Computed example of a mutant assay.
Amino acid sequence: MRLVRHPVLCNYYVTYRCNAKCSFCDIWEKPSPYIQLADVEQNLRDLKRLGVSVIDFTGGEPLLHRQLPEFLALAHDMGFITTVTTNGLLYPKYAERLRGKVDMLHFSLDSSEKEQHDKGRGVACFDFVLESIRVARELGERPDILFTVFPENLHQLEAVYRDITQPNGLMLIINPAFEYNAVATGEQLSDAELDYLSAFGKRPGVYLNEGFIGLRRDGGNHVAAPVCRAASTTLVISPSNELVLPCYHLGTKTFPVEGNLYELYRSEPVQQLAALEGRLPQCEGCTINCYMQPSFAVETSKYFWQALPSTLKYNWYKGTWKRMLAR
């Protein structure tokens, strides 16, 4: 049963540019402009009308955009829940300007060992993440650590939890790696490794969407009976101010926004393509967390019930439920 029939999330790409070269991502390879303030102001108004409640200012590396604090302030003042994920390289420099504007601030960290983390990210950023944690805590911020899990770094979860997140009072977010397009992530997590993650996710101070585990056990999205609701739950806006459908990672078509996102999203061409969410050939076997998380939240299914406990746990810990009630 569908519970919510309007989009709830906007993945707003401020730029595709990045100062890292992560092995499991191809975004940094793309040439890219930066989003413009006037477009952001108009689009936020339209996103509000469409019912969106969460704005994820993303990239690339979102902190490369010098106006990011202004975008966040606009969104925050309009009642949106805001989220930013960063590799930490620029956070200490801009932390004061970001203070109080990000509801869900994530620092990417995939190992407790500097060499392993920096190798995966293609740039020396481990020390910057630790410095970002120190600076954020001094400013009274409550960042999370986003740990992207592969079979080769699974053993590092314990050390990151014991030595970094728990001593600093941070939430450890477990993000199982996913493949898309030509981006390969190596061996998939085995059933035994999924069992380990499932048990780890039950610890205090750890967030793991159990729906992600269930979906992987089931072989991902299946076009014959799709669970993905990417296009009806999530709007993707590119740095060129285009609406990307059905999602960023598997996007097949872009539509220029041209100052009227509200009418564009509701237009027949967009809705026809949105209706194919989860049903395109490239959607078979998909496990992209960015779109499965909102998909699980808008209709009752076994994934909804699997995801619910971790969602409640995280929102209670972060206090974002207070912001939701105030909207």
Rank of each mutant, 00 (worst) to 15 (best):
V298Y: 05
W305D: 15
A38M: 05
Q42A: 13
M1P: 06
S132D: 07
I174P: 03
F71P: 00
H155R: 15
F128S: 14
V183G: 01
D77E: 14
D195Q: 04
R45G: 15
Q271R: 15
N87T: 07
F200W: 11
A177G: 01
A230V: 12
A274Y: 07
S198M: 11
I174L: 15
T287G: 06
P269V: 11
S295R: 07
T320A: 07
M104D: 13
S23I: 14
G169P: 01
H117T: 07
E96S: 08
I237Q: 01
L261G: 11
K101Y: 10
G51E: 09
R203W: 01
E242R: 14
N260H: 09
R229Y: 08
L189E: 06
T83F: 01
K202V: 06
Q156D: 13
T148M: 08
N241W: 00
I81T: 13
K318H: 09
V206H: 04
Q116P: 04
V223Y: 02
M104R: 15
S108A: 14
C22F: 10
A95I: 06
G122E: 11
L197D: 05
G88A: 10
S23P: 00
R217H: 06
P62S: 12
E268K: 14
H155I: 08
Y13P: 02
D56V: 09
Y13N: 12
R97W: 03
Q293H: 14
L243K: 04
R99F: 08
R5N: 15
Q166V: 14
T165E: 08
S112K: 01
L146I: 00
L194N: 05
L47F: 02
E242G: 02
T148A: 13
T86I: 07
E263M: 09
A20Q: 08
A230D: 02
I164T: 03
V149L: 04
R217L: 11
D46A: 03
A38D: 15
V244M: 04
D46K: 00
E152N: 12
H106L: 14
F126W: 14
A326I: 03
A225Y: 04
R203D: 01
